[in-house]
């Protein structure tokens, strides 16, 4: 029993890391630009479809690299062409814009790649199980944990250790101040949006062999990602990570004990967090609540 629970936790960590990758992009874009990106799920979908397209020609690892690059570029273009012109407007408009983009993207995927789910399996080297003692763990899931942890670390180092990253973080607290300091905030926005898109693309790519590749895959991950952002606290990198892990683990454990409630339990957690700590676990008081 205890072993099964350990396995479920490892499994939950794998799911949690995917959610964290999604949530980081959402939360930083939200904190810095006040944009709720409803198309974030579509970027995740595009990441997965990049992999299935290049997989046969390039193999798995190059495809895994191609996905965030391709989706990151798409993110840069979206931000530059569509979102930037309407920053000055009510945040409602960017929300609706990305809502429309999400609808468009899903159908474009259907037109280009078809309606049917794409067969996608982990590469030979990573498929099957790894026995740790007597305990079997999915090799691919361990791989997901390692890769996404590395990526989260890199992102964190960028945000905390580089000049540019610190400016981004400062911007999430007070973007007027950053503007006043004479920093070209538009460029910063584009960059951050691209980065968020790339992370979503990577999450989709990593998820492709285990969560299925189909046109609607983005809408199944966007809601838990939103919940992660709220639980972790808007604009908080650490919140995205901790929030992602806790949601992932809770979903996995719920399957072991109350399978029927496995997707309602996330919202119970959300309500609890809001009651006890309305700004989210790592949220800063006052940020975004005015």
């Amino acid at each position: 029993m205890a072993f099964t629970i350990l396995q479920q936790v490892v499994n939950g960590v794998a799911l949690g890391m995917l959610l964290a990758l999604m949530a980081v992009g959402l939360t930083v874009v939200l904190g810095l630009m006040r944009v709720i990106n409803m198309a974030h799920g579509a970027l995740y979908t595009l990441g997965a479809y990049t992999v299935v397209t290049t997989f046969d020609r390039w193999g798995f690892l190059p495809s895994l690299l191609a996905a965030p690059i391709a989706v990151g570029v798409i993110g840069l273009v979206l931000e530059g062409v569509l979102i930037r012109p309407i920053y000055q407007r009510d945040p409602l408009h960017t929300l609706l814009l990305t809502f429309g983009l999400a609808l468009i993207a899903e159908d474009l995927v259907r037109i280009v790649w078809g309606d049917a789910p794409y067969p996608m399996s982990p590469p030979e080297l990573l498929s099957g199980i790894l026995l740790l003692g007597d305990l079997p763990f999915s090799k691919y899931r361990l791989f997901v944990i390692v890769v996404s942890a590395a990526l989260m670390l890199l992102t964190w180092m960028f945000l905390a250790r580089t000049q540019l990253g610190r400016t981004v973080l400062a911007g999430t607290f007070d973007r007027e101040m950053v503007r006043v300091l004479g920093i070209r905030i538009n460029l910063l926005f584009t960059l951050v949006f691209g980065l968020g898109a790339a992370l979503a693309g990577l999450a989709g790519a990593l998820a492709s062999p285990i969560r299925g590749v189909f046109p609607g895959m983005g809408s199944s991950i966007i809601m838990p990602s939103f919940v992660v952002v709220i639980i972790g606290g808007m604009g908080s990198f650490g919140g995205a990570l901790i929030g992602g892990l806790s949601v992932g683990i809770i979903i996995s454990l719920a399957v072991e004990f109350f399978p029927a409630a496995s997707d309602v339990v996330v919202f119970v957690l959300l309500a609890l967090v809001l009651l006890v700590r309305p700004r989210g676990l790592f949220g800063v008081e006052g940020l975004l609540s005015r």
Binding site: L30, R34, V35, I36, P91, L92, L95, M223, F226, V227, V229, I230, M234, F267, L270, L274, P278, L288, S289, R290
Partner: peptide, 14 residues
């Protein structure tokens, strides 16, 4: 209590 975009996000979740 929450305002603006944060509020919108909470309504989505609930």
């Amino acid at each position: 209590r929450k305002a603006g975009i944060y509020f919108a996000m909470l309504t989505i979740a609930f």
